[in-house]
Amino acid sequence: MPQIPDALTPDAIRAALAHVDDPELHRPITELGMVDAVEVRGDGSVDVKILLTISGCPMRDTLTSTVTAAVRSVPGAGVVRVQFGTMSPEQRAKVTATMRGTTSAAPTIAFNAPGNMTRIYAVASGKGGVGKSSVTVNLAAAMAADGLTVGVLDADVHGFSVPRLLSVTGRPTRVDQMMIPPTGHGVRVISIGMFVQGNQAVAWRGPMLHRALQQFASEVFWGDLDVLLLDLPPGTGDIAISVGQLLPGAEVLVVTTPQAAAAEVAERAGAMAVQTEQRIAGVVENMSWLPMPDGSRLEVFGSGGGQRVADSLSAQLGARVPLLGQVPMDISLREGGDEGLPVVLGHPDSPAAVALREVARGLARRPRGLAGRSLGVSVA
């Protein structure tokens, strides 16, 4: 009988498995309590039992391959057999508490915790049809492509479109009271569209809309995000008010077109931030012009709307609200939305993509204030 190397021990196997992350939770499986048993047999083969959070886990095959590779990295390991079980409700509750970083699995809005450094931008518009959702997903995709960890919360419950725009077809994975959002192009996404059949309409009023936003903010495990973007419904209704209540640290990003009528309505959307005492990050002017073959610009919707909104909001706030960028009309932007491939990824050199990427990088570089952060000092 071959001699088993001294290095091939259950402890060595567990140490190797500490480098295996759960593909959905993005944390080591040993830290999550998923490694239930490890047995080294006399012939050098290894049996590992992994507990899944749910019985129908879609990542079972991925876990099998990563666990097998980790065990085989231990000197002397032979055949690896991976078996799966399912966590008990108590074990799932512990996973939820571990992920939330608390002693309780009860959902809370982590973005409001002292010291949280996630930048939150609520993308708003006065009226529909100005390209607010397209701007949101392209900013998110551009930031993710630059290496940031980004999430998009589709708060437009009645007119949800983010899943299509980011080509997200999956549903969240539920672990106890926690939902793991699916990803599209490196962006974590949650939307009411993931919970309805087909193109079913959502006919909800104020309290239900508030509760949906509250659940998406507290029961979704977003992880350690650099940036969270909220795609708000147009106007100044229930969701805009709820954002101010539930995520008071969110900054408002106003999207408008150059048209005077659209700009007037956009000013009202920005003025809502004044009432909810939220900061306005700036204004993005979409559909600014149509580039012509001869290099000239055709201003289809007029000009000056974005700057007008920025100037008006600056006067109301008594502080400068910048015009962050002007995004030209671009057929590749529309095509990317239909295909679920943001233009910043599909046509990165197009005029619209260049403008959107500049806005995204400007927002990502903005310094964070010290409000709510521990300075590590104490009174002597």
Rank of each mutant, 00 (worst) to 15 (best):
M1T: 14
Q3I: 14
D6N: 14
P10A: 08
A16G: 15
P23V: 01
L25D: 10
V35C: 04
D36Q: 14
D36K: 14
S45V: 03
D47P: 02
V48Q: 02
K49S: 11
T53V: 07
T53C: 09
T53M: 10
D61Y: 00
T64L: 14
S65R: 15
T66C: 10
V67K: 05
R72F: 08
V80L: 02
R81K: 15
G85Y: 04
G85N: 03
P89D: 11
P89T: 04
V95W: 03
T98K: 08
R100L: 09
T103V: 03
S104R: 03
N112I: 08
A113Q: 13
P114F: 08
M117D: 14
I120V: 15
S125M: 06
G126L: 09
G131W: 02
K132Q: 10
T136P: 08
N138C: 12
A145D: 12
L153H: 10
D156S: 12
H158S: 12
H158P: 02
G159Q: 06
S161M: 06
V162S: 02
P163C: 07
P163H: 05
R164V: 07
R171H: 07
T173N: 05
M178S: 00
P182Y: 03
G184D: 09
H185Y: 09
G186C: 13
G186K: 13
R188I: 05
V189M: 07
I190H: 00
G193T: 04
G198W: 00
V202R: 02
G206M: 06
P207Q: 04
H210G: 03
R211N: 13
R211P: 00
L213V: 07
Q214W: 09
Q215M: 03
Q215T: 03
A217H: 01
A217Y: 01
V220F: 00
W222E: 12
W222C: 11
L229F: 15
L229H: 13
L232R: 06
L232D: 01
G237N: 04
I239T: 08
I239H: 01
V243Y: 06
L246Q: 15
P248K: 06
G249Y: 01
T257V: 08
A260V: 13
A261Q: 11
E264S: 06
E264H: 10
E264F: 01
A266G: 07
E267I: 15
R268H: 10
R268I: 02
A271F: 04
V274A: 11
Q275A: 12
V283I: 13
P291A: 07
L298G: 12
E299V: 01
F301Q: 08
R308G: 02
V309S: 12
S312W: 00
S312G: 11
A319G: 04
P322F: 08
L323A: 04
V327R: 00
L333S: 03
E339G: 09
G346S: 14
A352R: 01
V354Q: 15
V354I: 11
R357H: 09
R357V: 01
A364Q: 09
R365M: 09
R365T: 10
R366N: 01
L370N: 11
L375P: 11
A380E: 15
